[in-house]
Structure formats: structure tokens, C-alpha cells
Simulated scan of single mutants.
Amino acid sequence: MTDPAPGAVLRGAVDLSSLRNRPQPAAGAAPADPGAASDLPSLIMDVTDALFPQVLELSRTVPVVVDLWAEWCGPCKQLSPILEKVVTELGGRLVLAKVDVDANPQLAQAFRAQSIPLVVALVGGQPVPLFTGAVPEQQVREVFAQLLQVAAQNGVTGTLPVEPGDGDAAEPAEPALPPLHAAAYEAIEAGDYPRAVAAYEQALAENPRDADARAGLAQVSLLQRVQGLDLQQARAAAAAAPLDVDAQFAVADLDVSGGHVDDAFERLLDLFGRLPGDERAPVRERLLELFGLVGDADPRVIRARGRLASLLF
């Protein structure tokens, strides 16, 4: 998170002017969806392009955290539950606005969401950049603590009234996770990725057809691989050694975790095409792992699979 000067709000990071003054519905028009505007405010809300002016106005009372995500984004699925948990525990001092970038292109453009997950705050109607990519829970807590300080410096100190149990009502009840899945989830929340990997691997050993365990293993393996990596250093190492498989893997993993999926696929496919036939297997395996992480139906995966097939044959 960028550290602003006391009493100042970060300006100019994104342009929200086009979203501030949308036309209001004409008199007599059909009421908005009851699950949308009428539910504002709440601790955790799904926000659309049309509802965003209300979110901006709300940010003049209480800081709003904006989570820009997409269904295909694996790191988003790791980060979103952490954001929801921490916001809920803060008891109304922050609000979480979730934005599906695929369904809300104007918001994605306004926030310049070139990679996701992207997390930005709104304080007094102005944007405050927070972070990009999946981060551990402890880092989320630290960033949110800084955000509350920035909000206080700018006179935004309201608290949203929360009824007992409201945090639990933000999400529908779900069936209990299988024991190994629950163990993996707890390990991820604690930032213990090796333990999470071990739990998912054990689940797959017991049931090789466990698709949820396979997807979870791919996601947490990626988080484990990128933990502690520095993007600039990784890019420099990859540029200095174009045929170094590990160096190219590191940048590809960082690109996927940051939402730059096409860049990651192109890097690995270029590497695959340049390597001798007997050295290609690890690259193919990493590509297939990332294909599964992003989703077989994703257009980027379909394109990359086609190019991989042409390189194989």
C-alpha cells in the first residue's frame, strides 16, 4: 500500500469521474433489483457498474475495499475469502465491494485492472491503491490497519451498524468440508503452504478423482512457488537465461498469480518450442497444470492448447 501524506487522500491513480454521476432512473421506472441497491449498505456486497455511484457515496462515511476479481482467476478464489473474513471481523469499520471484472467492464477500465485480483480502497470518494495478487491473511490485516489510519486522517471514521450474526449471513451456509480439505484450507489461512499441499496430495492419494483437491493443489502449489519471489529480479534472471527452465517458470508463475495469463502461456510455449525434444517434458507438465488452474473452458487456455498441439506435432 502506498503511504500517503497525513491528511491527504491518494488521487489520480484511477479515473472514476465517468462513474460518479450516472443518470438516475426516471420517475415511475421499475424499481431496482431488490438484491442490489436496496441492500446497500452491507458489510460485503456485489457491486455493478450501475451501483457504483452509491458505493462512492458510502465511502464518504466508511472506507470501502474494492475487490476486482473474475470467475476464471484462481488467485482471486484464494484471496476473496480472506478479504471477506477480515472485513467481517472488523465489525463495520470497513465495507467490501466485490466487482466481477468480466461482468462490469466500465469498472475494470476505470480501475485499470490489467491484472487481478486487484484490491483498491475508496476513502471519501477517492481511490487508495492497496495491492495486486493473492497475499496472505496477515498481510491483508496489516494493509487494512494502514487503510483505517489513512481514513481517519481524512475524517472518514464511520462504522456501519452490524446486527449480531450479520457477518455470518453474508454468505450462504455451505456443507462441511472433508477433513483433508478443511486441513488444507486452515493451512492456507495460516500461510503454511507446504502443509496445505500435503493435505491435498493425501486427498488425491485416497481419491484420485477428487477434482476439488486437484484444483486446490494447483492453486496452493502456485502460491507456494511465488511466495518470496521478487518480480523484477525474476524477470531479470529470465531475460539473462532464456533457456533456463526454472527462471522461466518463476516469471510464468508470477504472471499467472497476477492475472497475466496470456503472458505466462506465451512465455512457456516459446520456451517449449526452443528446447530440445528430450528437455520439453517439464514445460509441458507445467503448462498442463496452469491450464487446469485457469480452467479448460477459458479462451486463453483453448488458444494455448492449440499452439501446444502444433508444437508437438
Score class of each variant (00 low, 15 high):
3 D>V: 15
7 G>I: 08
11 R>Q: 15
13 A>N: 15
14 V>C: 13
15 D>G: 08
20 R>Y: 13
20 R>V: 15
22 R>L: 15
29 A>K: 06
30 A>L: 12
37 A>M: 00
37 A>Q: 04
39 D>H: 01
39 D>C: 06
42 S>I: 03
43 L>H: 02
49 D>N: 10
53 P>F: 00
53 P>M: 06
54 Q>V: 03
54 Q>Y: 00
59 S>W: 00
61 T>L: 01
65 V>G: 08
66 V>H: 04
76 C>T: 02
79 L>H: 02
81 P>G: 09
85 K>S: 15
85 K>H: 13
90 L>V: 02
92 G>Q: 10
92 G>R: 14
94 L>R: 05
96 L>K: 07
99 V>N: 01
102 D>I: 03
108 A>W: 00
110 A>F: 00
112 R>P: 00
113 A>T: 02
113 A>N: 06
114 Q>W: 06
116 I>Y: 08
122 L>S: 04
125 G>P: 01
129 P>K: 04
129 P>L: 03
131 F>G: 13
132 T>D: 05
132 T>G: 13
133 G>R: 04
136 P>Y: 00
141 R>M: 04
141 R>G: 04
142 E>I: 01
144 F>I: 06
148 L>I: 12
149 Q>P: 01
149 Q>F: 01
150 V>Y: 11
158 G>E: 08
158 G>C: 07
164 P>K: 14
167 G>Y: 03
168 D>T: 14
171 E>Y: 02
172 P>S: 04
172 P>A: 14
178 P>K: 05
180 L>S: 09
184 A>K: 05
185 Y>L: 09
188 I>H: 00
189 E>F: 04
190 A>D: 11
190 A>W: 10
195 R>N: 11
196 A>F: 05
197 V>R: 13
198 A>T: 06
199 A>V: 04
199 A>T: 02
200 Y>C: 08
200 Y>G: 09
200 Y>Q: 12
206 E>C: 07
209 R>N: 14
210 D>F: 11
212 D>I: 03
213 A>R: 07
216 G>Q: 07
217 L>E: 11
218 A>T: 08
218 A>V: 09
219 Q>V: 08
219 Q>F: 11
227 Q>D: 15
229 L>H: 11
229 L>S: 01
233 Q>A: 14
235 R>C: 13
237 A>L: 12
238 A>V: 07
240 A>K: 15
242 P>V: 12
243 L>V: 03
246 D>W: 05
246 D>A: 15
247 A>K: 13
247 A>L: 13
249 F>T: 04
250 A>G: 09
252 A>T: 10
255 D>Q: 15
256 V>H: 12
260 H>K: 13
263 D>S: 13
267 R>S: 07
267 R>A: 12
268 L>S: 11
269 L>P: 10
269 L>C: 10
270 D>L: 14
271 L>K: 03
272 F>R: 14
275 L>S: 07
276 P>F: 12
278 D>W: 12
283 V>H: 10
286 R>Q: 14
290 L>A: 06
292 G>K: 03
292 G>M: 15
296 D>K: 08
297 A>V: 14
298 D>M: 04
301 V>Y: 01
302 I>Y: 00
303 R>I: 05
304 A>D: 12
305 R>M: 01
308 L>E: 03
310 S>R: 15
310 S>M: 15
313 F>G: 15
